Simulated assay, not measured.
Amino acid sequence: MAKTPRAPWKRSNPRKRAGKAAKHLSPAQKSAAKARARRAGRRYPNLVDNMRMAAKKTSKKKTSKKKTFKKKTSKSKAKSAKKSAKKSRKRSAKKTAKSSRKGSASAREKDPRGGLTAAGRKAFARKQGAHLRPGVTKPEAEMTPQEMRRKGSWAVRFYGRAKLPPLVDAKGRPTRHALSAHAWGEPVPKTVAAARRIAVKGERLLARYRRTKR
């Protein structure tokens, strides 16, 4: 047979058995216990009313703990947001530094007067395996047959095509396509007629190369 629980007024105070000091209700708890008794039709609060009010104290503690936990979580969220913002700023700074390094490298590889620099030819050899050589700037009388072939094929490829790329930009400055003539010892063309004259010179060099080969 299971024992029926004894009424609280028939049990001894557990705090006294443990040797602890008894806890008293606060004035607010006492007024709440009196109000509970009046609602039940009693003049004074009994032990059950006081126990109810004492039990509510622990629930308040729990709610206060929940509030502090919420505050802590909001603080931690703010800290994590700050960390993520710092990381994103670092990433953007690294990207800008990389892009500036790439831009400076490409500027070093291109000759501002036209064509590629020695560093640019090395970069092409490293990336694409192409063995590029500097343009032939010698006079026609001093050229070897191979140099005639190289310069003639360049001139026909660049300025002998049916439709030429733009030779001048919107501000009237020569484009990279036009500046390539400087790397081969030719005047930079700004008009289609000037570009066609370079192409005709290239055809003459190729014809001379074929005659010397025969």
Rank of each mutant, 00 (worst) to 15 (best):
K72P: 01
A97M: 09
A105I: 07
S104M: 14
K75I: 03
S59P: 02
K110H: 12
M143H: 02
K83F: 07
S100L: 14
K66G: 06
R36K: 14
A32S: 09
R43Y: 11
M148N: 00
K67C: 01
K138C: 03
M143W: 10
R149M: 05
S31V: 05
P134S: 14
K98W: 04
K34E: 13
P134A: 12
K110E: 04
H131V: 14
A107P: 03
M51V: 03
G103K: 15
K86M: 06
R39G: 05
R133P: 06
G115P: 03
K87W: 10
A54N: 09
R121T: 01
G120E: 01
S100R: 15
R121A: 01
A125S: 11
S99G: 00
G129R: 02
K110T: 12
R38Y: 08
R89Q: 13
L132M: 14
K90P: 03
A55K: 04
K83Q: 08
A33I: 03
R133Y: 10
K87V: 00
K70R: 13
E140W: 06
A130M: 10
P145K: 07
K151A: 04
R133Q: 15
T137F: 05
M143F: 10
M53T: 00
S92M: 11
R43G: 07
R39D: 14
L116D: 03
L47C: 00
F69W: 04
A141K: 14
T117F: 06
R108H: 10
E109T: 02
A85K: 13
F124H: 00
K151T: 00
S106E: 13
A107E: 10
S74K: 13
R91H: 08
K82I: 08
K65R: 11
V48L: 11
G115N: 01
K60I: 07
K34T: 00
R89G: 11
M143C: 09
R38T: 09
K71G: 10
P112R: 02
S31M: 13
S80Q: 14
K95H: 11
R121F: 09
D49F: 03
G129Y: 06
K95W: 06
K75A: 13
K127V: 11
N50G: 02
S92V: 03
